[in-house]
Amino acid sequence: MRFRTWVQTAFLGVWMLPMGGALFNICGPVYHCYACPLATFACPIGVIANFSAIHVFPFFAVGMLLFVGGAVGAFICGWACPFGFFQDLLSKVPTPRWRLPAWTAHTRWAVLLGMVIFVPYFFGVAHPLFICRLCPVGGIEGGVPAVVSAAIAGEEALPWPSPWKIGIVVLVVSAMFFTYRPWCMLFCPLGAIFTAFNRFSAFFLRFEPKACTSCTACHKMCPAGLTPDKRANDPRCIRCLECTKCPTSALSVGSVFRKA
């Protein structure tokens, strides 16, 4: 098993501690729905959306995102996010894959501004476009365990999510078999925030032009279909660091704590 897979597995132990919501007053830095029976922390996107609905600025959630984003940027997406790990596991299924065009990454900002901030602020949490009502992460991590546990308990009325949410879950999970991390690349509002820090984070991807032989091996290694030799800190990069296997070591991890 790859080193990154081990790290992602280890982080599951952080985000999925069965503490019964004892730490729900703290935002975690990853996209993990607090409706999950094993959730340790509150979802930052859910908190921002709910705070937007009550017209209160979420200092804690924004502070957490600034702190983590400024420190590691999208490393958190590639190495710690449980839903990203779920997509990584499904990406190992040998099916034909398509690479998404670059412009599609902007839809993440539309989701962030529209469904996380504007809709809750102006229409409240009851609006059908409120992020938690459609979020497939909540559908998979919260809805599925709720239905299964109710079915095991023998309840007659199972707590099915809305048909829209079920449809979105089916679509997103199906897309995971045909493209790499479709949720992260297309819709994830948290990914939009963290990848925006790629150019400003303390840890970053370093490219040495003199060492590059233009072999384009990094193009083939990047699972997201990016071109690290042209744009090492691309706002779509999730920092999986596959490209740092560059045969000439032109790409590597750097930090601001090391002097030039």
Binding site: R199, F204, L205, R206, F207, E208, P209, D229, K230, R231, A232, N233, S252, G254, S255, V256, R258, K259, A260
Partner: peptide, 9 residues
């Protein structure tokens, strides 16, 4: 020791 980030060339 390393250099400061290379973001594009």
């Amino acid at each position: 020791p390393g250099r400061y980030p290379v973001m594009a060339h």
